[in-house]
């Protein structure tokens, strides 16, 4: 008797030419603007070459499995409300702005890095879970965007705790940071779905040390591809410790052997700041190519227990490319890692 039903609202164009997204303009300001997202073939359901989106679903940690693996039980298909006006897709709620910003950011970082000769193709596609539920994990303290590696290969985008600022999931720097984790996983584990070798060992200090470099590398990808030393300011203005142009200096307490509750971001910011020093001496493009090459070389050495070795390799590769960098970069190395023995390149 009451069976449906005619919908007045027709489905919008699934592949609009432009979609509203938060982006960094050439003047260095972040703003919402119409942007093309060529890989997004279905804007309503968030499906495309870079990955498919799911709404909700459930992320569970398998507490009783041998490797305490993480599993994602897929949620439903995304279904965004929007209309296309003058060739620009306009969302009817915040979810559209967040998700199109997310996809546009991935599209852009892919184009940026591939254009520089950094092969990102093994990373794609990465599916994402939008606001999933968690079982057995506490994400409430850090509502955020995140990358789940070690076999899961999934982005998760969570609601924000601070309503008055840009959601972390719509912050181009945060999305680039999370992409950096995915790239790190591919560079070090060799495959997007492989478990990283440093996660398989018994020594938590090794795992934590690599976590620090992983966080630092993710910040390097974000800061160097955006050419913005402090992208967190948009979403977390009170957090000033992640500014890579500031004076982060390593000390013994930043290494997991000497810490009770380990914070990987402190040492990670030191590494990212050293990469920013290189950017100040060269360019953002040149620096990002060199930091990726240094992770590649460090991974080839499997020097998982010695993440400072990555900084030595960055120094070596940079000086090998441009001898004039030797003096200023060695000075930067000594300033950032003062307790580390002088690298051979600087001797």
């Amino acid at each position: 008797m009451f069976l449906p039903l005619v919908m007045f609202a027709c489905s919008p164009d699934p592949s609009p030419a432009l979609l509203l997204a938060v982006d960094r303009d050439e003047d260095g300001e972040y703003r919402v603007a119409p942007r093309p997202i060529p890989e997004l073939t279905d804007a309503q359901h968030m499906e495309g070459a870079l990955g498919h989106g799911y709404r909700g679903g459930r992320i569970a940690i398998e507490l009783f499995s041998a490797d305490m693996g993480i599993r994602y039980d897929e949620g439903g298909r995304m279904d965004l409300d929007y209309d296309v006006i003058d060739d620009v897709a306009i969302p009817m709620d915040e979810d559209g702005l967040v998700l199109w910003t997310y996809y546009h950011t991935l599209s852009q970082v892919r184009a940026d890095l591939n254009g520089l000769g950094v092969d990102t193709e093994p990373v794609w596609p990465i599916d994402f879970a939008y606001q999933p539920a968690f079982v057995g994990m506490d994400f409430t303290s850090g509502e955020n965007a995140a990358y789940l590696g070690s076999g899961v290969h999934l982005f998760i985008l969570l609601p924000d705790a601070l309503p008055a600022v840009l959601p972390l999931a719509a912050n181009p720097g945060v999305i680039r940071h999370e992409f950096g984790h995915a790239l790190f996983n591919v560079l070090t584990a060799g495959d997007a779905y492989a478990q990283a070798p440093y996660d398989a060992g018994d020594d938590p200090n090794v795992t934590n040390k690599v976590r620090a470099l992983n966080e630092g590398f993710a910040d390097m990808i974000a800061t160097l591809t955006l050419d913005d030393n402090d992208f967190f300011d948009l979403s977390l203005p009170s957090v000033t410790t992640r500014d890579v142009a500031a004076d982060a200096v390593a000390d013994a307490t930043m290494y997991p052997e000497n810490a009770e509750a380990y914070d990987p971001y402190a040492l990670g910011t030191v590494y990212a700041s050293f990469a920013w020093d290189l950017r100040e001496l060269t360019s953002a493009d040149q620096a990002v190519v060199l930091v990726v090459a240094a992770v590649d070389a460090w991974s080839a050495e499997a020097a998982w227990d010695d993440t400072d070795r990555w900084a030595e390799l960055l120094l070596e590769l940079s000086v090998a490319e441009d001898e004039s960098l030797k003096t200023p970069l060695c000075a930067a190395f000594a300033a950032r890692l003062p307790e580390h023995p002088t690298p051979e390149t600087c001797a």
């Binding site: 009451f2 919908m7 609202a9 509203l20 306009i90 969302p91 009817m92």
Partner: peptide, 30 residues
């Protein structure tokens, strides 16, 4: 009980200094 429902949704999206668009749509349902 049950019966037909008509829902009219209207969203105002604002961005930039002056840009804004209002989208209105109607959906029939139960």
């Amino acid at each position: 009980g049950a019966g037909p429902a008509l829902t009219v949704s209207s969203a105002l999206t604002e961005w930039g200094e002056t840009d804004a668009e209002r989208i209105t749509r109607a959906d029939l349902g139960v």
